[in-house]
């Protein structure tokens, strides 16, 4: 069983790390989590981003956050990626597997996965 003592150990380990952390990150990944997003499968997408960013050790400059409905419910799960000094990328109809690919190619590799973006849907 997990115990609160273990949480204390995590705290002690993290204290030094957190104090070194600068700013809130250069990249922000925003997942839509309103009724439309949730019903379309946004929860596993969000969790894939949270875990992927953490496993890749990208937590210092990539932030994963949630937002409400942005008005394109038919394209949920919708994920927006904001990068410093770049145009916003909007991914639509996301899945956990696509999220892993986006982390690999876009977040780490710097190149948006264009076939998953809203531009590819001929809106």
């Amino acid at each position: 069983m997990k115990s609160l003592e273990e949480l204390m150990a995590i705290k002690n380990k993290m204290q030094d790390k957190v104090s070194v952390r600068t700013g809130s990150g250069d990249i922000r990944i925003v997942v839509g989590m309103a009724t439309c997003g949730i019903a379309a499968g946004a929860r596993p997408v969000l969790n894939a981003f949270v875990e992927g960013i953490s496993n890749e050790g990208l937590g210092d400059h990539v932030q994963v956050t949630q937002t409400g409905c942005i008005g394109i419910c038919q394209y949920e799960p919708v994920v927006e990626v904001y990068e410093k000094d770049k145009e916003k990328t909007t991914y639509v109809k996301m899945t956990a597997d696509k999220a892993k690919e986006v982390i690999e190619k876009h977040i780490k590799g710097g190149k948006p996965v264009s076939e998953y973006t809203i531009g590819a849907t001929h809106l």
Binding site: M8, K11, M14, S19, V50, E51, S54, G59
Partner: peptide, 13 residues
């Protein structure tokens, strides 16, 4: 347990 400095949203937590 965590105190003020550490958010519950930290991936480790």
């Amino acid at each position: 347990v965590l105190g003020d400095g550490i958010s519950l949203a930290e991936p480790e937590v």
